[in-house]
Nucleic acid binder design. Structure first.
Lengths: 110, 110
DNA sequence: GCGGAAACACTACATATTGTTCCTATATCA
DNA sequence: TGATATAGGAACAATATGTAGTGTTTCCGC
């Protein structure tokens, strides 16, 4: 399986949507998107960018390019997801999410 | 002119090399690379990644994807706070925070 | 149990796009 | 002048893509 395909599957799972739903959101025909998600075909660059934007990720992540040199890949991926989700929130909601996260970070470890 | 083409030209200039030299470094035939650098053709995804790596950039930059999806200053400040808090969390905790944030973002507005 | 919708895999083919070759032109330098 | 390097145009065979048809499996309401 191709890396892009795995990432598309993974991202859909993260968002809790089916590939067909992802296709609809991106504005592509189901079958066409299914080709990308199965690794049989590759999208052109403009389509890649649109898919990444719609799914709340970046071409870098879809193509398996590490975000930063020193940063932990898993952490930065999760922070990116948060940053994207932040755009769909009101400022107040975002603030509450951050407060909650800071509380989690400050919670005593066992 | 295509964006990728402009970025390739810009990057070559930054590195102080010709397009032909860039082609050699990436390991592509001059003519083929020249097509990318002129916007007449698009590379496949694997080639794009290789070009980006060789030229010391990323697919995101070559495709013009902004570093951070957020634009608002208040939003990016809060995201930064989150990123800082993320360092004090376990990966699992961070993941749960992100899932929670995504759920908030996806919740219907009144 | 049954019908229908949804998701996904496989095949096929006309079309569009690419990789490559051949050719021309300009600039630089020995 | 001759040699070398870079850049780009035109054209064609090879390749990859978009789309359609078909079939299978799973799930859900009745």
């Amino acid at each position: 399986m191709d890396l892009l395909a795995r990432r598309l599957q993974e991202r859909a799972k993260q968002l809790g949507i089916s590939n067909a739903e992802a296709a609809r959101r991106v504005g592509l025909e189901e079958r066409r998107y299914a080709h990308y998600a199965s690794g049989r075909r590759e999208p052109d660059l403009a389509t890649l960018v649109r898919i990444a934007a719609t799914l709340g990720t970046t071409p870098n992540w879809l193509l398996g390019v590490p975000a930063g040199p020193d940063i932990d890949a898993d952490v930065s991926t999760l922070v990116e997801r948060f940053a994207y989700a932040a755009n769909s929130m009101s400022l107040r909601e975002l603030e509450l999410c951050v407060i909650q996260a800071e509380a989690v970070a400050a919670a005593p470890r066992k």
